[in-house]
Structure formats: C-alpha cells, structure tokens
Design a protein around this nucleic acid. Structure first.
Lengths: 168, 168
DNA sequence: TATTGACAGTTCTAAAATAGAACTTAAGGT
DNA sequence: ACCTTAAGTTCTATTTTAGAACTGTCAATA
C-alpha cells in the first residue's frame, strides 16, 4: 500500500495514520507541544536528519497540522506552529505518553510529569464517554457502520462470527 | 536514529513510538480491536504483504502487546490476541479515530460510529484530567521533569525562553 | 490415490525510504 | 575578508518495503 492510498481509505484510523503514522512525525509533534518551532531546534533536539525533517515539516504543513509563520525578513525565516487542527492532536499525544508511562518506563520512573493548571494537581489523562462521562474500555464499546462506511467485508463478518462462538 | 535507540530514549512518546509508530502496526491493532485474530484474516483485510505482516506480528508479540494462542493442533495454528498491555492501547486508537472523524472525513461522513454499551448512546471519546475531571487542552497543562528525566536540554530552554518572550 | 484447498508462514528481487555527511544561499557581525 | 546563524538542498550508501512466488502440514474431495 502506498501512503497516498492510505488517505483515501474509508477509515479514520488509516486517514490519521497517513498524517502522523511514521517514526518521525509523532516526535516532531511532541517537540511542537514542547514549544519547539524552528528548523535547527527540531534538528538538534531530535537528531533527525535535515533531509527528513524538511520532508516531514512540509508534510505536516500540507495536511494543515502546522503553519509556517515568518519571524524575520532579510533573510526570510519561518517558524512552524501548530494550527487548531494540530492542537487537536493533543489527546493522541497524551494517550501515547500515558501508555508509555504505564507500560514502558524503566526503574528510574517517568521522564515527565504533567500538572493541570486548572486544578493545580499532577494528573493522568483519562478517556471518557462524551455522553455519560464514564471511563471507556474496548469491551464496553460497540461499533456500527457510519454513513461513510465501505460495504462490510466478509473477513470481518467471519471473524466476528468466530469471536461470538468462542465467547459461548 | 535506529528503532532500537528509540526504545531506550528517556521519553514516553519515543518508547511508545518504538512499539506502534509505523505505518502498519496501528492498522494491525485496529484490526485486533475489530476482533481479527488470524494471519490470513489480517492479510486479507489490510492488504499488507505477508512478509511485513509476519514481521509486525512478531514485533507486537515481542513487546507484549499481542499473545500467540494455539487454536488447533495438527497442524499447529495460532491466533494473535490482545494482552492487557494491548487492550490498554484503546485510548490511543480511539483518540486517533476521533481526530480522523473531526479532521479527515470526506463528504460522505464518518466511516464508523461508536455506541457505549453502558449508556446505550452514540458517543465521542473525551480526554479529561484524572484529578478534576475537566476536559484537557494543551494550554492548560504544565510539564515538569520526572524522576526518569534526562538532564534538560539547552535547546528546550532556549525555545521556551523565546516562547515566553513572544507571549509578552 | 491423487488433487485441491486452507493456513501460516518464508524467500526472492526490485523499488522506495532513510541515514549521514557535505554543500548552498543570504545576511549580520568582527 | 572571514566567521556565524539559519534553513534548507544535494549526494551516496544502507535499510525497509512492495509484490509475487514458494514451502510445509494437514483435511476434505474426486
């Protein structure tokens, strides 16, 4: 599968993966949320090659996640800052951080702690249902085809059959 | 940077990216949450090459995200099912789906809808603070070095200086 | 008995992406 | 004149990925 095919897929995971689903994009975004904005700063703090960094920044700008803002004329220089679309990636980054905190820390403990300015406490992010506010788990969620669905695949039907039989 | 170096980084994003930060791993996990469990079913529903699928499944098993369970003897065949560590990836998948739903849908609308069995309503996932329950935004969060932090980088110090000056 | 099909991979070559280093352009300071 | 900062671009070598074909086991069918 090509990257371009991914954006066209009738699946919100695939389309999002087309934007952020590679080794570097997520790390570039992490730096954005840590207020890094300039080419050489990204390069220094990530150790990414300049070639790839230029490529990834271009991609993120193309998808409307970052915006290029001039911060000086002569010579013209730009900063890369998050758009609203980019800021909306925050829950993805935070859930990634949290999973890493729970499952990938070494004996020294968490690399970072997060303080909620609103309540002034150290916190973890929790994903809840927009309707009832309860924390979400995979088992409590049922999936329905939406208006933009592809016709349901026989593979999934078969696998769900099997899963149901196994539950008995 | 090599993949192996990524797992060692003192950063929960980097370590998580080492597990799920490639084009295919997230899509394989999507299928897992849709109850796909067998090699040929993954292959058929994703269109991934068999070579890469074998490689990714091996990686996910190695990281403890999937477990290989025999479902028949003679010939011995295995299913890949999510461990608890794998099930804990659900908030990541859901936040990815949600971002795609908001920012990447075409005119036909969402490919999938989610029903919360507990309250029986269609919902969106919302990320909240574990302490006060308020929805989280990037601006309301302050970052502190934790016990496993690397010594703070001059690049970040400089960038945060600049960000503060720009705010005035 | 021979053949076909399901399943879970492995092996091969060609194409694409990435790493690592050097080079470019443009202006300001010493 | 020469050095520095900044934001890229260009080059070659290495690694990953795509795409297709092949292997090994067993069960069911002709």
């Amino acid at each position: 599968m090509k990257w371009d095919a991914l954006e066209e897929e009738p699946c919100s995971v695939a389309r999002t993966v087309a934007v952020i689903g590679d080794r570097w994009s997520l790390l570039v975004l992490r730096e954005c949320f840590l207020r890094i904005r300039r080419f050489d700063d990204f390069q220094a703090s990530l150790g990414i090659t300049r070639h790839l960094l230029a490529d990834r920044l271009k991609k993120l700008v193309r998808f409307g996640v970052l915006r290029k803002i001039p911060y000086q004329e002569a010579p013209k220089r730009y900063e890369y800052i998050l758009t609203q679309k980019g800021l909306d990636l925050y829950p993805i980054i935070m859930s990634i951080v949290h999973w890493g905190n729970v499952h990938m820390v070494d004996s020294r403990g968490r690399p970072m702690l997060h303080e909620h300015k609103t309540c002034k406490k150290m916190f973890d992010p929790v994903m809840v249902c927009s309707e009832c506010g309860e924390p979400l788990s995979a088992k409590a969620v049922h999936v329905h085809p939406g208006p933009g669905a592809r016709k349901s695949s026989p593979v999934h039907a078969k696998a769900q059959e099997r899963a149901k039989r196994a539950a008995d």
